[in-house]
Every structure is written in C-alpha cells, then in structure tokens.
Simulated scan of single mutants.
Amino acid sequence: MRRAVEGLATPHPLGRQLPAIYAADDFAQRLLAALDSVVAPVHVTLDNLWAYLDPQLAPADFVDWLGGWVAADAAIDSPAARREAVRRAVELHRVRGTGRGLAEQVRMAFGVTAEVVDSGGTTWSLTPGAELPGSPEPSMTVRVHPAGGDPVPAARLRELIEANRPAHVTYTVEILSAAPGDTAPADPR
C-alpha cells in the first residue's frame, strides 16, 4: 500500500453519499472528510493499478516487488536496468543457463559485453559412431569486455555466474583490459 499523499482529494467523497438528513450535519461531514483523506490513496492506487503493474511506470520500490513476482535478478543495482530485468523476465527465463542468457545477464547487471564460450557442441552424421564435438567434461569461459575502461567487480561477476550457470558446468572468468590481447588472470572454477 502506498503512503498517504498530503492534500490528496478523493474522487468519491463520502459526505456526498450520506442521506439528506446528514448532508447538512457539520460533525458528520467533518468526520467523513477525515476518512476521505485515509481512503483517497486507495482510490488513487486502484484507479492507476495498470501503471503499478508496468515496470516502466511503477514506483522504484514497487518495481522491486514486481521483480519478486517474476523472479527477476535482484543483484542489479541500476534502477533502469532493474526495470528492464522485470520487463524482460519471461524472455530471460527462457534462455537461463545458456551462453546467450548468461551474456545477457552480465550485460544487464554490469553494462558490459560478455562472450560465453562453452565446451559442448552438436552435430549430426550419417555415419554411426562418428566423432562427437566439444569435450566430454562440461566447462565454459566467460570473457568480459569492459566498456570505456570501467572496472568490473570480479566478485559480483562470479556471484552472478554462479547463480545463472548450469550447476554441473565449471567456469573460468576472464576480464579483458582495454588494450587488445591483455587479459586479467583467469579465475578457474
């Protein structure tokens, strides 16, 4: 429930709904005017409920609540990125655990480009017993390309990867520097 807004008028004053005998009663009108100030935020909220359910228009604290409904990533700090995560929650859940989904999660959380390379692969063959692609042990490498030399918090990046990778897949994080070919030390997991 939203807090009361100072001076907010109700679109449906209770005093107007009284029988004629009480309409002229000053005490009844003052009592109901006090109740109107309590009920006015309820009317305003219900009249604008559609805006509360739209992550682009909802108040910031309500966006966090909506994020809980759709299991949007709570680790995102930026209010604009948080709204985007709530708005795109269904789309992001469809690709969760994939390289594309993980790269998108990193982009939304940190505003950087990520490249996810995994050890798996698919193929088809007319020949039985053909060589399988990829490696037998599942693993992935996440390469992060910081934008404009801004540092990426490595601990938070690892937490995000831990929460969104498949549980059986080991990973390595590479935070690339601005100079081509320079990489920070890899963190094998």
Rank of each mutant, 00 (worst) to 15 (best):
P138T: 02
V44A: 15
E104W: 10
T98E: 01
A178F: 07
V112E: 01
P166G: 07
V38N: 09
E174M: 09
L46Y: 14
I76Q: 06
V144Y: 01
P59A: 00
A71R: 15
R156E: 13
E84I: 09
A74H: 06
G120V: 00
M108L: 15
A9H: 12
M1K: 14
D182P: 03
L53P: 06
A130Y: 07
S125V: 03
R96S: 10
F27S: 13
L49Y: 13
E174Q: 15
V5D: 08
G134W: 05
A9R: 14
D26V: 15
D77Q: 08
T45R: 13
S125T: 04
V142S: 02
V39T: 14
L46A: 12
H12C: 12
V38E: 12
T141L: 06
H12P: 08
S177D: 15
A74W: 04
N48C: 09
G68D: 07
T183A: 14
P79Q: 00
A28V: 04
A186C: 03
L132A: 04
G149A: 01
G148S: 04
A33Q: 09
L35F: 15
E159T: 10
Q56H: 12
E6T: 10
Q105P: 04
D150E: 15
V5C: 03
R82T: 03
G129S: 00
G129L: 02
A163D: 10
S135A: 14
E131Q: 07
D150S: 12
T170S: 13
L157G: 06
G101M: 01
Y22P: 05
A147D: 14
P133K: 05
E159N: 11
L66V: 00
V106M: 06
L102Q: 03
V42S: 12
T123K: 05
R30D: 14
A89G: 04
L32N: 06
P128H: 04
T172N: 11
V90K: 08
L46G: 10
L176C: 10
R156V: 05
L157H: 09
D25A: 03
V70A: 00
I161K: 03
R87D: 08
T127C: 04
L32G: 03
Q17Y: 14
P41Y: 04
L66S: 00
G129C: 02
G97H: 01
Q29N: 14
M140A: 11
S119M: 07
V44P: 06
D47M: 10
L31K: 10
R189Q: 07
N48K: 10
G15F: 07
G111F: 00
A51F: 09
A4E: 12
W69E: 13
